[in-house]
Design a protein around this nucleic acid. Structure first.
Length: 297
DNA sequence: ACCCAGGCGGGCG
DNA sequence: CGCCCGCATGGG
């Protein structure tokens, strides 16, 4: 181990590390969270970053430990969207009683900004799947295909998220062995496409609509997954991914229980939450899921 | 045993 | 177009 561990601190309002970690966003599928010490560890490139939250949700500090504190503060700030003014966000998405309850239940949950490729892989895995299995498959892919990260003495620290190039060279069969099932083919093809035919990083300068359109060229990525990647891989807050839970919840809460099609719901969300739609979706998804499960559907 | 999960592509009418 | 179906796998 290096012996020059450095510490830094970021003051944050409306931040809850546990809610954010448990919200099944790409980073949280390969970070480690200790519930008791409220500590989260993840790798940025090959650098381990450790963060701990102290204080309360309304006002607290993220304490960061790293061997390169300048880099780490910048990284944490970016990934956890520390500069989002959550009071302003809440004011804009708190449009009714349901949203008020959703915000109250998950206050401090942040959207995260993830590497576009990580978001792409994770959300391809997410289709027709559940959160627990998505986490498991992602971890197995990292374990089986991620490059070993070591410290300066060669001591292994963990595995990196597998690059598209590595997965493009892997066999569909070996990918399937990670539990990916029928998605193995999508993963293989997307890995090839993202290595040779599209520049995911270059897309970040484009507007939301173009990003979504480009992503949908990839086999296995439709409208919902593209919206997830636009939101959590590119930070396009106007994206509003509609999955089964969101569709059910919106139908129930805003359309008198009448099952409403995606296109109509998409318009409804954009009209209601506009450039904060992504945050609205995040709270609506989790709270709607809780309520739905309580009612047994 | 049965049902469903942060959908998508393909085929059919 | 819109609708409907199958899809791997594992947990509840």
């Amino acid at each position: 181990m290096q012996n020059n561990m450095e510490f830094g601190k970021l003051n944050v309002k409306e931040f809850n590390l546990k809610h954010t970690f448990e919200s099944a966003q790409p980073l949280t599928f390969h970070a480690d969270f200790n519930d008791i010490s409220n500590t989260l560890t993840y790798f940025s490139k090959d650098r381990p970053i450790n963060i701990r939250f102290e204080g309360n949700t309304r006002n607290g500090n993220i304490v960061i430990a790293s061997y390169d504190i300048g880099y780490a503060i910048n990284d944490v700030s970016r990934r956890f969207r520390i500069n989002d003014d959550m009071r302003k966000v809440y004011k804009n998405i708190n449009t009714d009683k349901f949203m008020e309850e959703a915000i109250e239940s998950y206050r401090g949950m942040r959207l995260t900004l993830n590497d576009p490729w990580e978001a792409t892989l994770v959300f391809i895995i997410s289709q027709f799947n559940n959160v627990k299995r998505i986490r498991g498959i992602t971890k197995k892919l990292i374990e089986n295909f991620g490059e070993q990260i070591t410290d300066e003495y060669g001591k292994p620290l963990g595995k990196a998220f597998p690059s598209s190039r590595i997965l493009a060279n892997a066999s569909e069969k070996d990918i399937a062995k990670c539990g990916a099932g029928f998605r193995a083919r999508y993963i293989k093809r997307a890995s090839e496409y993202c290595t040779h035919n599209i520049d995911l990083s270059g897309l970040s300068r484009k507007p939301y609509g173009e990003i979504k359109e480009s992503l949908m060229e990839i086999d296995g990525i439709g409208g919902k997954v593209a919206d997830c990647i636009a939101l959590m891989g590119y930070g396009k807050l106007e994206a509003f991914p509609i999955d089964t839970w969101v569709q059910r919840t919106l139908s129930k809460v805003y359309f008198k229980g009448k099952n409403t099609n995606i296109k109509k719901l998409q318009e409804f969300a954009t009209d209601r939450w506009g450039k904060y739609s992504g945050y609205a979706q995040q709270y609506l998804f989790w709270y709607g899921r809780d309520i739905g499960r309580l009612n047994g559907n």
